Amino acid sequence: MATTVTYDELVAQTLAMCAAVSNSPQGRLQLREAYYGKYGFPLLARQELGNAFDKPGAVHGVDLPDLGYGNSEIAFLKWEIKRGVLNPMDDASMPAGSPWWRDVNLRFIYYSELAGLMFENNVSEPEAPVATLNWLNYLHSPSAKTWYCAHNTSILAGFERYKAQAAQEESVEQVFLNITLYRLMFAQALVEDATMFGELGAIMADPRGFAVALITHLPDFYPLNYPLHGLNDLRIIEGWELNLQGLGIRILDHDIILPHLTALYQACAHWDSAPFINSYVKDGKPVYPQ
Rank of each mutant, 00 (worst) to 15 (best):
I236D: 06
E169R: 05
R107I: 06
I74T: 00
G70P: 03
P56R: 04
H229P: 04
Q13H: 08
L184M: 13
Y288G: 02
L86A: 01
E192C: 11
W240L: 13
G70S: 03
R235L: 14
V11N: 01
G284I: 07
P142L: 13
S124M: 01
S171T: 13
D103A: 08
E113T: 11
P42S: 09
M94L: 15
T6V: 07
G230S: 03
S279M: 10
T14P: 02
T3D: 14
L156G: 01
H260A: 10
A128M: 02
A34Y: 06
H217M: 05
C18N: 11
T216M: 03
I179G: 03
F108Q: 03
A144P: 00
M196F: 15
E120S: 09
R32V: 14
I179P: 04
S154C: 07
A269T: 12
T262G: 06
L244Y: 13
L228W: 10
W79Y: 07
S279V: 12
Y138E: 05
E127C: 10
L214F: 10
E120Q: 10
I203N: 05
L231Q: 12
L247M: 05
Y35V: 02
T3G: 11
L247P: 01
P25G: 00
A2S: 07
P42G: 04
E192W: 14
A20C: 00
W101G: 07
A269K: 15
I215T: 15
K285Q: 14
Y148T: 05
N23W: 08
T4W: 08
S141C: 10
V11G: 01
